[in-house]
Design a protein around this nucleic acid. Structure first.
Length: 465
RNA sequence: UCCUCGAUAGCUCAAUCGGUAGAGCGAGCGGCUGUUAACCGCUAGGUUUUAGGUUCGAGUCCUAAUCGAGGAGCCA
């Protein structure tokens, strides 16, 4: 008797093998007098294993009643070649055990489809569906691909802190972390004394690990972070989460050109790995999720072509000369609206676009200033359907220019003293970027809403699970 | 946060001009069948999100709240 996962059984199972398989029932089709067909799924792959349970299996009459959608069962049996179409092999049970019943009157998942909105309300059960099983496996494959990509290039994995007291870069509204008793504080009516708080000063959840990654890029060399990030923005869109995972590589002795090169091969490698390692899941997304069934073709198109590299100034020109009517007109100095980004990547170029050299007024203090005095070495990678998937830059390594820029952005260098120190002692040109992991999952799976690309989405007014 | 739309059976939806709330799926029961998101028959299942209001009468009209979706802003 060999204990087998469904994926393994379907791939390598051969007639005559005695196997022990366990999982959850997707559907049961009965032949009352003779036997039952059970579709068994254990999450190891998209496909189900067909189990045939004959009526003379011990305890059949009692047990089969409880073999309903959602119930967990353990089967011992023999692998046989399937006489019917639809599957290569099947398992003929010699024993059946119901491990956990699932009352069919109450079990929320049906064999037929559900809306994603409904499934979000039962996030504890949705991984049992085809779609969310597939997303989970793709997420896992993508995370593995990310580590492989960096590890194979000698990047060091850095764990940046989740709790921080530096109000870093103003990347977004922060979630405050405190052990102070808010009820007492509110009742007292007195101003808050943060010296009494856990860290002795205001603390928050991180909005980025970039500044910390720079510390390690300037010591151990190429490195990357991959961890949760928090933004307390009141954003209600299909592309934003309050808690999301971000990948942030940082490289010393590199400029913006190197940065773009890395970003491009990074995205291509991860997509390529997922397509190779999650073939069945990707086929499912192509057929059932992408309405036009173009997902695989779109991914292949990304792999086959070089990303467009377009300076901000030229992008403005392209947009102005496009003849396209935009809701917001565009001119040099203004930030691109979603409609503009979408036009460039979805209509004009129809592939990923790297925009770079943005006006300095639009970007944060740490981005390297160009000689023209007007722009900084910033880059955004835009992809069809998702929009901005990467934001990055070459960092300002010159102490005097950095201090100047901080002044311009009304930031106190004292607060960032350790960041400024990196320019004071052995400064080097360096660059890096941040990639939103869930947006990458959105791109690869074709899922419309980012809330379905993370196991437990956190958005305004919602953190049930 | 702003704009638009929505909330009716377990799920997905319908309900004409304001006049007795319906279907499909799912579920239960029965039948049939090496079945494949099976098929056929029967049955059960509703305080129409909540709180007010208009009206002889409200699922339908008005006000507010809550939740959800799409778009915008912010960004990854």
């Amino acid at each position: 008797m060999i204990r087998m996962k469904v994926a393994q059984a379907l791939k390598t199972g051969e007639a005559g093998q005695l196997v022990d398989v366990r999982g959850w029932v997707r559907t049961r089709r009965d032949s009352k007098q003779a036997f039952s067909f059970v579709e068994l799924n254990d999450g190891s792959c998209m496909a189900n294993l067909q189990v045939v349970i004959d009526a003379n299996v011990p305890g059949y009459a009692d047990a089969i009643k409880h073999v309903t959608t959602g119930a967990s069962i353990a089967i011992e049996g023999e692998v046989k070649d399937s006489p019917a179409k639809g599957q290569r092999i099947e398992v003929h049970a010699t024993s059946l055990r119901v491990l956990g019943e699932a009352d069919p009157l109450k079990y929320p998942l049906q064999k037929k489809g559900h809306s994603f909105e409904f499934l979000r309300e039962i996030a504890h059960l949705r991984p049992r569906t085809n779609t969310f099983g597939a997303i989970t496996r793709v997420r896992n494959a993508a995370a593995t691909a990310i580590h492989n990509f960096f590890q194979s290039r000698g990047f060091c994995y850095i764990q940046s802190p989740i709790i921080t007291t530096s109000d870093c870069e103003g990347a977004g509204q922060m979630f405050q972390v405190t052990t102070l008793d808010l009820h007492k504080l509110a009742a007292s009516g007195k101003p808050v004394n943060f010296e009494l708080d856990f860290f002795g000063k205001p603390a928050s959840l991180t909005v980025s690990g970039q500044l910390e990654a720079e510390i390690f890029a300037c010591s151990v060399g190429e490195c990357y972070t991959f961890g949760p990030t928090f933004r307390a923005e009141n954003s209600n869109t299909t592309r934003h989460l309050a808690e999301f995972w971000m990948v942030e590589p940082e490289m010393p002795f590199c400029d913006l050109t190197d940065n773009m090169k890395l970003a491009e091969s990074f995205i291509k490698t991860v997509i390529g790995d997922v397509m190779k390692n999650c073939e069945a899941d990707m086929a499912f997304f192509n057929e059932r999720i992408d309405e036009k069934h173009e997902l695989l073709a779109t991914m292949q198109n990304i792999l086959d072509h070089e990303f467009i590299r377009l300076p901000y100034t030229e992008a403005i020109d392209v947009l102005q000369k496009s003849g396209k009517k935009f809701e917001y007109s565009i001119e040099w100095g203004a930030d691109l609206q979603s409609e503009h980004e979408r036009f460039l990547t979805e209509e004009h170029f129809k592939q990923p676009v790297i925009l770079f050299d943005y006006p300095r007024t639009l970007k944060p203090f740490y981005m390297r200033c160009n000689e023209d005095g007007k722009t900084v070495r910033a880059m955004d990678v835009l992809v069809p359907r998702v929009g901005e998937i990467i934001g990055g830059s070459q960092r300002e390594e010159r102490l005097d220019v950095l201090l100047e820029r901080m002044k311009e952005c009304h930031l106190d260098p004292e607060t960032y003293w350790w960041y400024v120190d990196l320019r004071r002692y052995g400064t080097v040109p360096h660059a890096g970027f941040g990639l939103g992991f869930e947006r990458l999952i959105q791109l690869v799976t074709g899922m419309a809403n980012i809330r379905d690309c993370i196991p437990f989405p956190r958005v305004p007014k919602s953190a049930e699970f």
